[in-house]
């Protein structure tokens, strides 16, 4: 999940923003969101009985 988040956020940051600073900030933000959503979904699925 971390590997995927790293790669995808690098691409999203590069494609979506124009300056290096904006790319870095956006990439970090997307990376954090991927990790948070992934962990949250994992815990939700862990408690589901089916």
């Amino acid at each position: 999940m971390t590997t995927f988040a790293l790669v995808a956020s690098a691409v999203f940051g590069t494609v979506n923003k124009d300056t290096t600073r904006d790319r870095l900030i956006y990439g970090l933000k997307v990376f954090g969101e991927f990790m948070l959503v992934g962990l949250a979904l994992s815990w939700i699925l862990y408690f589901l009985p089916f």
Binding site: V7, A8, V15
Partner: peptide, 17 residues
Amino acid sequence: WMFLLVAGLLNYLAMLD
């Protein structure tokens, strides 16, 4: 296979860029 799918989808983004 998930990484293989992601590779293709990311390349579509790169191609459009």
